[in-house]
């Protein structure tokens, strides 16, 4: 009962924040409010017993994306222009789609229903036998690390590739800037420092 009331209050706050994000024209305030929205969503996830999801939401939504959005704001303007026209047709389409999806939820099994199809397929097997088969006390860990080990390996590969790509993009840009700026200071010392700097020096001289 108390938890339900807290959920309702948190959802009201989230709705108010989303509406304020829509109405505000100062992009700095919008970035701040989206960070607040992520924090509220993280509280909501904790209230729904999804602590790991809440942790990800706080780290990514409130931490990293706020900082990234501020970095974007440093490169762009801080005011949002008013749209030239008010789009009525997209609003109608989105409202109809949302209403259809909402209507579809009436056919879904109740939250936590033991007879729902998702709880009848492989979940009982995991719950009964995972400790005997894998030997880990935590069922979620044994599913992620053993039953779906290849899936987890693929996910880790994707994240690793994305991280390497981001490091290449950011690192390459920074190295170029540093080489161009420091070039006049020491010509002789810079000649055999590295391949990239050397090529940049010749390109700039030619």
């Amino acid at each position: 009962m108390i938890i339900t009331l807290i959920d309702i209050i948190l959802l009201t706050f989230m709705g108010a924040t989303a509406f304020a994000i829509l109405r505000l024209r100062s992009l700095f305030a919008v970035v701040m409010l989206s960070g607040i929205y992520s924090l509220l969503a993280a509280s909501m996830f904790v209230s729904l017993d999804a602590v790991d999801v809440a942790f990800t939401e706080a780290a990514v939504g409130a931490g990293i994306s706020t900082v990234l959005m501020m970095a974007v704001l440093a490169l762009t303007g801080e005011r949002e222009r008013l749209p030239a026209r008010t789009p009525i047709l997209p609003l109608v389409v989105v409202t109809l789609t949302g209403a259809a999806l909402f209507y579809a939820t009436f056919e879904m099994p109740a939250f936590g229903d033991a007879n729902a199809p998702v709880n009848l397929h492989v979940a009982p097997h995991y719950l009964k036998n995972s400790f005997a088969e894998v030997g880990l006390p935590n069922v979620v860990t044994s599913i992620l690390a053993s039953y779906r080990g290849y899936d987890t390996l693929g996910e880790v590969t994707v994240i690793f590739t994305a991280g390497v790509a981001v490091m290449l993009l950011l690192g390459g840009r920074k190295g170029d800037d540093a080489g161009i700026k420091r070039e006049p200071a020491d010509d002789a010392g810079n000649a055999d420092s590295g391949d990239d700097d050397d090529r940049d020096t010749r390109g700039g001289a030619a």
Partner: peptide
Amino acid sequence: IAIVYALINFIGVVAILKY
């Protein structure tokens, strides 16, 4: 987890202030 939230909050605010 609440303690980690406090850390994230601190880092985020420092980044915003730096900007």
